[in-house]
């Protein structure tokens, strides 16, 4: 067996499964978004579904909201994760515990986190009760609206809760791989701590941080159940709108749902490219792609 054959054989099962399931599903979605559904007599593909949604304020509002959620969640998570990783790199009492909690957090499903955030931050939730007990507010209505709110604060809080440990662990692993020698060298050459961080460590961490952020952005943009639990009734996050259009009893809404799915896929695809560009190359030393 040649090496080439072996490689093909090793890759074939994964390709067949993902091709059969993932790419065929995407393909069908694409066809249907062009309103190509021979079963119900639509045989002339067109762009009507895209034209409809792009002209609809509901869709644009949802797209904007989802982009806002994804951008703010990603930036906040990345910033806090960087701070947390820098903290956890040092020795102090309780570090091991926090390291464990970081990993523990990864095992908690997003839905559970969302419900927890709801119970914490709603206007009659735990924080509102503390504020009331402390005399800061006179009733639930005076507590700021942080869930089911127009700025999606609750949704963003949930993502930050889940993604800070995710990005943080990636950064910690990278820091471990980088070691402290580079910074030490910079310090010995007269750089301040801050300079050593911004000029030496941060640039070396950046590719990993960007790759991890791409994963977080794609997830926060495309998740369905979290905005469903924590979002306001209008505008809805794009995935919620897409799924609702798909399950609308009016079949005419389906191509629009498919078009929205394609737009979500497109943004997801862009994140794939960002990830692939910045993630550590696989294989031995050489850059993979």
């Amino acid at each position: 067996m040649t090496e080439r054959t072996r490689i093909i054989l090793m890759l074939a099962p994964a390709f067949l499964l993902l091709g059969g399931v993932f790419f065929s599903a995407l393909g069908l979605t694409l066809l249907r978004s062009f309103r190509y559904m021979p079963v119900i007599g639509l045989t002339e593909p067109d762009l009507a579904a895209y034209a409809t949604i792009l002209a609809s304020p509901g869709f644009l509002g949802s797209l904007g909201l989802s982009l806002w959620i994804a951008a703010v969640s990603t930036l906040t998570s990345a910033g806090l994760a960087l701070a947390a990783a820098l903290l956890l790199r040092q020795t102090f009492p309780g570090r091991r515990l926090i390291g464990f909690l970081f990993q523990l957090n990864l095992t908690v499903p997003h839905v559970v986190g969302a419900i927890g955030i709801l119970y914490l931050f709603s206007q009659s939730g735990a924080f509102a009760r503390l504020a009331y007990a402390g005399g800061l507010i006179g009733g639930p209505a005076e507590f700021p609206a942080l869930v089911h709110d127009p700025f999606a604060v609750g949704i963003i809080l949930q993502y930050v809760w889940k993604e800070v440990p995710f990005i943080g662990l990636i950064l910690l692993a990278n820091m471990q791989a980088i070691g402290e020698d580079h910074e030490a060298t910079a310090r010995s050459l007269g750089a301040t701590r801050w300079q050593a961080f911004t000029h030496v460590l941060l640039p070396m961490l950046m590719p990993g941080l960007i790759a991890a952020s791409a994963l977080v952005f794609a997830f926060a943009f495309g998740a369905y159940e979290i905005p469903l639990l924590l979002g306001a009734n209008a505008p809805e996050a794009l995935p919620v709108l897409a799924y609702r259009s798909y399950t609308d009893v009016d079949l005419a809404a389906r191509p629009e749902a498919m078009a929205m799915a394609m737009i979500i896929a497109l943004i997801g695809g862009a994140m794939v490219l960002v990830y692939a560009r910045f993630a550590r190359p696989m294989g031995r030393g050489r850059h993979a792609g």
């Binding site: 979605t29 794609a218 495309g222 995935p239 897409a242 798909y246 799915a261 979500i264 896929a265 794939v272």
Partner: peptide, 9 residues
Amino acid sequence: IVPGIAVAL
């Protein structure tokens, strides 16, 4: 990376 909603339908 591509969100589940994009393929689920």
